[in-house]
Nucleic acid binder design. Structure first.
Lengths: 244, 244
DNA sequence: CGGCGGTTTGAAATCTGTCAAGCGGGGTGG
DNA sequence: CCACCCCGCTTGACAGATTTCAAACCGCCG
């Protein structure tokens, strides 16, 4: 019982319930599923060990990442899986797995109840659509944003998503990742992530202490790196606004 | 009849047929659908005009791109839609459209036949799975590859995909895009794309004349930009290999 | 206390972007 | 038919962002 915080099971209901109205049966199914949690220690791979569960999974606690490793050691985190997120069962015909799913810190997962009814079915569909939108957001981030903008945009995405799962305060959230991991997600170097974070602290955009990030000026927008002219003056790019 | 080359209708059957075995009925449905083509002129948006077709579409000819525009003019092409590719009907509950689909050159589309049978259903599913894999490949490309590697990897992806649609030779394909467009896809500047292409020509990696790209050394791997050491010595990163 | 992982800092190298100008082909209109 | 223009490709010089390499610092745990 004390194994994990009491609210762990709440994330899926909070998130999926925000996507579609769930029947009492469906909520119960989610609650039941969360009673049979699987633990995955930091830096362990999902699906690599024999732990094929034969179905989709839901993240109850901790962060996972879809990771692509290069043969020379470079690493790119393609996407993050946060509490409440659904990990779809890998399709059998899927072309050779392009990526692995790795626990970025200690995590807890549970099986995703089958969508026998309307509510869950829709919730899963919305969840999948959001996942895809987030992949695209990640592409835009890597392709056209400066380091400063990338970090800023990423922090807000994480905050929005954690809010959905009921895992974030109005302007803060627990950040379990290392700067190096962040760098692997944003296509940067840990050194540069560090420097950029410092400049954000100087700009009074955020605080990061004791594993908790606090975003300031929630309304205000980001300042572009050090760039000048057309780009430098202001704003987070359009469409970077809240996704839902 | 002479409106468009005779083989235009072949792309969908070639590509989807490679994903699942299609019944004669299904092939006929595809052939029939391609008889009612919609044209979309270069730089026009899909779904923006009133041309909601009420269903999914298939690309018969030309290239489209899923594009994200920033308020300050920056542009990122998130993904490409080539002949034979399926454009899924935008879901109604989809969070505000993050992207637009734009014709990158003159294109021809046709409605996608409903998947009433096993074959097409699976073909569409595989197609969607591949699309997702390609999004991830794009993320890895933007996040961890040098300009030289990005272009190289991208060219090979296009070649592989065009092969599926029967639209590429064993080592060449028609390239309808401008270097500027390529830059918007790879998160680079047209100037830098130009210089990098030249260095690839010097390295005898490719030829690009008269709108046709010829890839040399198909087997051989890329040389990293000008980097030295661990990375510079060689190879396209692992997993960059053919997807299927 | 020593070691370890993660964070900071500094200085220099390199990649990529910016600005600006020239070149070249293809199409259009006179 | 030719002048002209527009667009896309090229080139050069330079500025700026990000990486690389190396070392120091810090909190924490055994």
């Amino acid at each position: 019982m004390l194994n994990h915080p009491p609210h762990v099971g709440a994330a899926p209901i909070s998130r999926l319930g925000a996507f579609a109205s769930l029947s009492e049966d469906e909520r119960r199914a989610l609650r039941l599923a969360s009673e049979i949690p699987h633990r995955l220690a930091a830096s362990r791979d999902l699906f690599h060990a024999g732990q094929r569960t034969g179905g989709s999974l839901i993240v109850l606690d901790g962060w996972l990442g879809r990771v692509k490793l290069f043969s020379d050691g470079r690493r790119q985190i393609l996407s993050f899986l946060l509490p409440g997120d659904v990990i779809q069962e890998p399709r059998t015909f899927q072309p050779v797995a392009v990526s692995t799913i790795t626990a970025l810190c200690d995590t807890i997962l549970c099986p995703a109840p089958a969508a026998e009814d309307e509510g869950l079915r829709e919730a899963y569909a919305v969840s999948a659509a959001l996942d895809e939108a987030n992949l695209m957001r990640q592409i835009a981030r890597l392709g056209r944003m400066s380091a400063y903008e990338r970090i800023h945009d990423w922090l807000f995405e994480m905050h929005e998503r954690l809010m959905l799962a009921g895992r974030a305060g109005p302007d803060s959230f627990a950040m379990p990742l290392t700067q190096e991991t962040l760098a692997d997600a944003l296509g940067l170097t840990s050194v540069h992530v560090n420097r950029t974070l410092q400049s954000m602290r100087r700009d009074n955009v955020l605080e990061w202490r004791g594993g908790v990030i606090r975003l300031k000026h929630k309304g205000a927008s980001a300042r572009a790196t050090g760039q000048r002219g057309a780009i430098g003056t202001a704003h987070v790019p359009a469409g970077t606004a809240p996704l839902r």
